[in-house]
Structures are given as structure tokens and as C-alpha cells.
């Protein structure tokens, strides 16, 4: 009785909040047929937005992955003073508003920013250009890989690494042949999640991009523009692509949990 009530309540809540919006994305995107859906990608600005998003992710995700692995290695394998402070600082971007994340770069590299004049002199543009978008995205997606790996590596312990070392393996050999295979599923999920956030970041990128159509518009920004132009099919078509990415991300997450029997957090 209570059971049925609670399950119904949960499902109703989730349907209204999660399923309905997800369904509406695809429903609207295909409301005028598959043809129209495809047609919306023929637009050159849309194409540019997709390319920019892919490029940003291609720069940000590898960098944050390397960072995440480094951070996880030094935090999970070593004891040092200030470790908990380091963990807190790594998590910091999660607590900061995306708008503030963008703002800080504007204050650093914008016209009135710390390096603004110098950048102007040397004719380097960061804000309202690709570097700014990359930096803001990097800030926002900074913790994802590290957060995924730290608990995983702490839980696994160092026995296998120690075994490898006593068997004569060096640091890199141990990392690539012992550690990496052990954390690959967690790493995969961290990378995928980082990628999803990187491609979907809106607030921070919106502040630094300058919204120049065809040049500095990422997919989420492009969605906003299309939406404001009442091009709902176009907006939702692009949104459906990002939703698909989210669904794939969740699928991989479930796969990872199934493979490792390990639940995050």
C-alpha cells in the first residue's frame, strides 16, 4: 500500500520533471518530420556551432583528463599536508555559478581586465574568441574526471601497484599496465561526463563568447538564438542532438556501474 503509493509518487514526479521535458525535446525536434530535422543542420551557422563545440571539447576534455589522472594519482596514492584543502579546491568550480566562472575570465582577459591592454597590444583575442570559450569550459568541467577517479583509486588501494614495483616495473609501466586498466571504466565515465558538460556548458560560455553567429556560438548558445528567433524546430533539433549525448552518457554510466559493480559517491 505504502509501497505502491511511494512508487507512484516517485514515478509521477520524475515523469513531470525528467521524462516530459526529454520527450518534448524529441517531439518538437521531429514535429515537422525527419526532413525538417535534417534540414535544420544544413544551416551554415548551425554547422559552425557544432564544429566549435566539438573543437572546444576536443581541447578541454583531454586536458582535464590528464589533470584528473594526475590529481587522482597524487591524492589517492600519497599522504601529504593540505590534501583535504586540495580536494576542496578541485571541487570549487562545482560550487561556483557558471556566470561567475565566465566573469572571472572576462575580468582577467577582457578589455578592462588584468591582461586586457597587453593582449590588445599584441593583437591576441581571448574573450569573445575560442581561447575564452575553451578556458571557461575548462573551468566548469575541471573537477569531473578527478572526482570520478579519486574515490575509485582510494578504494582500490595500492597492492597491485606495489606488486608491480616489486616485480621490477617502473612508474610508467606500472601506470599503463596496472593502474590504467583497473580504473578504465571509472575513467571512461569521468571523461564522458566531462565531455557532456563541456559540450553543454551554457552560462560560462555565454559570458565569454560574445555570441557572434557562425564564429563564437557553441551549440547551447545557438539553441538560445534559434529559440529566441522562434525557430523552435531548429532549436529543438540541436537540443535533440545534445539530449542524445546526455542519454548516451547515462547509458555508459549504467554500463560502467554494471561492469564494475561500483557506485559513485
Amino acid at each position: 500500500m505504502v509501497r505502491a503509493l511511494l512508487i507512484t509518487l516517485s514515478l509521477a514526479f520524475l515523469s513531470a520533471l525528467l521524462f516530459a521535458p526529454l520527450a518534448v525535446v524529441f517531439a518538437t525536434a521531429f514535429s515537422e518530420g525527419v526532413q525538417a530535422w535534417f534540414a535544420s543542420f544544413a544551416d551554415s551557422d548551425t554547422g559552425a556551432a557544432i564544429r566549435l563545440t566539438l573543437l572546444t571539447a576536443a581541447i578541454v576534455v583531454p586536458l582535464n583528463t590528464v589533470f584528473g589522472i594526475c590529481a587522482a594519482w597524487c591524492i589517492a596514492k600519497f599522504e601529504f599536508p593540505g590534501k583535504s584543502l586540495l580536494i576542496t579546491l578541485i571541487d570549487l568550480p562545482l560550487a561556483v555559478s557558471p556566470v561567475v566562472s565566465g566573469l572571472v575570465y572576462v575580468l582577467l582577459f577582457g578589455l578592462q581586465g588584468w591582461f586586457g591592454a597587453w593582449l590588445m597590444e599584441h593583437d591576441i583575442s581571448i574573450i569573445f574568441a575560442l581561447p575564452g570559450i575553451v578556458l571557461a569550459t575548462m573551468f566548469v568541467t575541471f573537477p569531473y574526471v578527478a572526482r570520478e577517479l579519486i574515490p575509485l583509486m582510494q578504494q582500490q588501494g595500492d597492492d597491485e601497484e606495489e606488486a608491480a614495483i616489486t616485480l621490477g616495473a617502473g612508474g610508467w609501466f606500472t601506470f599503463f599496465h596496472v593502474t590504467l586498466p583497473r580504473i578504465r571504466w571509472g575513467l571512461l565515465y569521468g571523461v564522458i561526463l566531462c565531455n557532456a558538460r563541456a559540450m553543454g556548458e551554457f552560462g560560462a560560455v555565454s559570458v565569454v563568447s560574445g555570441h557572434i553567429r557562425g564564429l563564437t556560438n557553441t551549440m547551447p548558445l545557438h539553441i538560445e538564438i534559434l529559440y529566441q528567433e522562434y525557430n523552435f524546430v531548429g532549436a529543438f533539433a540541436v537540443a535533440s542532438l545534445l539530449s542524445l549525448l546526455a542519454v548516451v552518457t547515462l547509458l555508459i554510466k549504467s554500463l560502467v556501474e554494471w561492469r564494475t559493480g561500483y557506485r559513485r559517491r
Partner: peptide, 26 residues
């Protein structure tokens, strides 16, 4: 149950702009 469990994380993975316009539409 497993699908519901997996979809809880949707807001983590779904771009905020997408959830914004989708909620508005609904």
C-alpha cells in the same frame, strides 16, 4: 527501476540550455 535509477542523473548530463527550453515547452 534500473531505468529510473539511471535517469536520475539526467540533469547532470543534460545541457542546462536544453533542460531550460524543454521545461519551458512543457
Amino acid at each position: 527501476r534500473r531505468i529510473v535509477d539511471a535517469i536520475i542523473d539526467m540533469p547532470f548530463a543534460l545541457p542546462t540550455a536544453v533542460s531550460g527550453i524543454a521545461l519551458t515547452a512543457v
